Amino acid sequence: KKRQCKVLFEYIPQNEDELELKVGDIIDINEEVEEGWWSGTLNNKLGLFPSNFVKELEVTD
């Protein structure tokens, strides 16, 4: 099962390897990279994003 999260706050990337987040976006979570940062895929782009800007969705079948 893939983990997903929903964006709660807009985020403007500070580095090229970060994702731009818009409220309501759904991100496929890949892994936790470091404290406070997750790796995920949004709009076919893989990048990092701050985990405190999102809420993980309940996994359903």
Results as ranks from 00 to 15, higher is better:
Glu35Ala: 09
Leu19Ala: 00
Gln14Pro: 06
Asp25Gln: 06
Asp61Tyr: 06
Asn44Tyr: 05
Lys55Gln: 14
Lys6Val: 15
Leu48Pro: 06
Arg3Trp: 06
Lys1Gly: 11
Ile29Gln: 01
Leu57Ser: 03
Thr41His: 10
Val54Arg: 00
Ile26Val: 09
Asn15Ser: 12
Glu20Ile: 05
Pro13Gly: 04
Asn30Phe: 11
Val59Thr: 13
Glu10Lys: 09
Thr41Val: 14
Ile26Asp: 04
Cys5Gln: 13
Leu46Ala: 13
Glu56Val: 11
Val33Ala: 11
Val54Gln: 04
Ser39Arg: 14
Gly24Lys: 02
Ile12Gln: 09
Ile12Glu: 11
Leu21Ala: 01
Trp37Pro: 04
Gly36His: 06
Phe9Gln: 14
Lys45Met: 04
Thr41Arg: 10
Leu46Lys: 14
Glu58Ala: 08
Arg3Asn: 06
Val33Thr: 05
Lys45Ile: 06
Trp38Cys: 06
Ser39Asp: 02
Asn15Ala: 14
Trp37Ile: 04
Asn44Leu: 05
Lys22Ala: 04
Leu48Val: 12
Phe49Glu: 01
Gly36Trp: 04
Leu46Asp: 13
Glu16Asp: 10
Asn44Gly: 12
Leu57Gly: 01
Lys1Trp: 02
Gln4Glu: 04
Asn15Glu: 08
Asp17Arg: 14
Gly40Arg: 03
Leu8Cys: 05
Ser39Pro: 00
Pro50His: 14
Asn15Trp: 05
Asp25Phe: 02
Glu18Tyr: 04
Gly24Thr: 04
Glu31Gly: 10
Gly36Lys: 08
Leu46Phe: 14
Val54Asn: 01
Leu48Asp: 01
Asn15Pro: 03
Gly40Val: 08
Ile27Ala: 03
Gly47Pro: 01
Arg3Thr: 11
Asp17Val: 14
Gly36Asp: 10
Trp38Val: 05
Ser39Met: 11
Val7Ile: 00
Glu18Pro: 00
Thr60Met: 09
Asp61Ser: 02
Val59Cys: 11
Leu42Thr: 11
Asp61Val: 08
Asp17His: 07
Phe9Thr: 15
Asp17Leu: 11
Ser39Glu: 11
Gly24Gln: 00
Leu8Thr: 10
Lys1Ser: 09
Leu21Thr: 01
Gln14Cys: 08
Glu18Phe: 01
Leu8Phe: 15
Glu34Arg: 12
Leu42Tyr: 13
Gly24Glu: 09
Phe49Gly: 00
Val7Glu: 00
Asn44Pro: 07
Gly24Ser: 03
Asn52Ala: 12
Thr41Leu: 07
Phe9Met: 15
Glu10Tyr: 05
Ser51Gly: 07
Lys6Pro: 02
Arg3Met: 09
Leu21Val: 03
Ile26Ser: 03
Lys6Gln: 15
Asn52Gln: 09
Gly40Met: 00
Glu18Ala: 01
Lys2Asn: 09
Glu31Arg: 14
Leu57Arg: 03
Glu20Ser: 08
Val59Ala: 13
Arg3His: 11
Phe53Thr: 09
Phe9Pro: 05
Ile27Pro: 03
Asp25Glu: 12
Leu21Arg: 01
Phe53Asp: 00
Asn44Trp: 00
Ser51Tyr: 04
Lys45Phe: 02
Val54Gly: 03
Glu35Asn: 11
Gln14Ser: 07
Leu48Phe: 10
Cys5Ile: 03
Leu57Glu: 11
Pro13Thr: 01
Phe53Gln: 10
Val54Ser: 00
Thr60Asp: 15
Ser39Val: 14
Gly36Glu: 14
Glu56Cys: 13
Glu10Asp: 15
Leu46Ser: 14
Leu57Thr: 08
Glu34Ser: 13
Asp17Tyr: 10
Leu46Val: 14
Val23Ile: 11
Gln14Phe: 01
Arg3Val: 08
Ser39Thr: 12
Ile26Gln: 02
Phe9Tyr: 15
Tyr11Trp: 07
Arg3Pro: 04
Thr41Ser: 07
Trp37Cys: 08
Asn44Phe: 04
Gly24Arg: 02
Asn43Gln: 08
Val7Met: 01
Glu56Tyr: 02
Glu20Trp: 13
Ser39Phe: 05
Ser51Asp: 07
Gly24Phe: 04
Glu18Gln: 06
Asp17Met: 13
Arg3Phe: 05
Asn44Ala: 12
Asn43Val: 03
Thr60Glu: 13
Ile12Pro: 10
Glu16Ala: 08
Phe49Asp: 01
Glu18Gly: 05
Val59Asp: 15
Asp17Glu: 15
Ile26Tyr: 02
Cys5Arg: 04
Leu46Asn: 14
Val54Pro: 01
Glu10Gly: 11
Glu10Val: 06
Lys22Glu: 03
Trp38Leu: 13
Glu56Leu: 12
Val59Leu: 13
Asp28Tyr: 08
Glu58Val: 14
Glu31Pro: 01
Ser51His: 07
Glu56Trp: 02
Lys2Tyr: 10
Ile29Asp: 12
Ile26Arg: 01
Tyr11Arg: 14
Glu16Arg: 13
Lys2Ala: 10
Asp25Thr: 05
Gly36Gln: 05
Glu56Gln: 08
Thr60Val: 06
Glu10Pro: 11
Glu16His: 01
Lys2Val: 04
Ser51Thr: 12
Pro13Asp: 03
Lys6Glu: 12
Cys5Trp: 02
Cys5Leu: 05
Glu32Cys: 08
Ile27Cys: 02
Glu58Arg: 09
Ile12Ser: 11
Leu57Cys: 12
Val59Arg: 11
Gln14Ile: 07
Ile27His: 03
Leu19Trp: 00
Val23Ala: 04
Ile29Ser: 02
Glu58Gly: 14
Glu31Trp: 02
Asn52Arg: 14
Arg3Lys: 07
Val59Tyr: 13
Ile29Ala: 01
Lys55Asn: 10
Pro50Tyr: 06
Tyr11Glu: 02
Lys22Ile: 08
Trp37Phe: 10
Val23His: 03
Gly24Asp: 09
Asn15Ile: 01
Cys5Gly: 15
Val23Phe: 02
Val23Pro: 12
Ile29Phe: 08
Lys2Met: 13
Cys5Asp: 03
Lys45Arg: 12
Val33Tyr: 07
Lys55His: 12
Asn30Ile: 06
Asp61Ile: 09
Lys6Cys: 14
Lys1Arg: 10
Trp38Lys: 03
Asp61Ala: 08
Leu21Phe: 01
Leu48Thr: 13
Leu57Met: 10
Ile26Lys: 03
Gly47Thr: 03
Leu57Lys: 09
Lys22Cys: 12
Glu58Asp: 14
Phe53Val: 10
Asn15Leu: 05
Phe53Ser: 13
Val33Pro: 02
Thr41Trp: 13
Ser39Gly: 05
Glu18Asp: 02
Leu8Ser: 12
Phe49Met: 01
Leu46Thr: 15
Glu16Cys: 05
Ile12Met: 13
Glu20Val: 06
Glu34His: 15
Phe53Cys: 14
Leu21Met: 07
Glu10Gln: 11
Gly47Leu: 00
Lys55Phe: 10
Val54Cys: 14
Lys1Thr: 14
Trp38Asp: 04
Glu32Trp: 06
Asn30Val: 14
Ile27Val: 13
Pro13Arg: 13
Phe9Asp: 11
Ile26Asn: 01
Leu8Val: 12
Pro50Asp: 03
Phe49Ser: 02
Cys5Glu: 02
Val7Asp: 02
Ile29Glu: 01
Glu20Arg: 11
Glu35Cys: 13
Lys6Asp: 03
Ser51Phe: 06
Glu58Leu: 12
Asn52Ile: 10
Leu19Phe: 01
Lys1Tyr: 10
Asn43Asp: 07
Lys22Pro: 03
Asp17Phe: 09
Leu21Ser: 02
Gly40Phe: 05
Asn43Arg: 14
Glu58Thr: 10
Ile12Leu: 14
Asn30Pro: 05
Asp28Thr: 10
Trp37Glu: 13
Glu20Cys: 14
Lys22Thr: 15
Ile12Cys: 08
Val7Pro: 00
Cys5Val: 15
Tyr11Ala: 04
Val33Ile: 15
Val7Ser: 06
Gly47Asp: 03
Lys2Gln: 14
Glu16Trp: 08
Leu19Thr: 01
Glu31Ala: 12
Val59Asn: 07
Glu16Asn: 02
Val7Leu: 04
Glu18Val: 00
Lys45Asn: 10
Leu8Lys: 08
Cys5Asn: 04
Glu20Gly: 07
Trp38Tyr: 14
Lys1Val: 07
Asn52Gly: 12
Ser51Asn: 02
Leu19Arg: 03
Leu21Gln: 01
Glu34Ala: 10
Leu48Ala: 04
Glu31Tyr: 11
Glu32His: 13
Arg3Cys: 06
Asp61Arg: 09
Asn52Lys: 14
Lys55Glu: 14
Asn15Val: 07
Asp25Trp: 00
Leu19Asp: 02
Glu35Lys: 07
Lys55Pro: 00
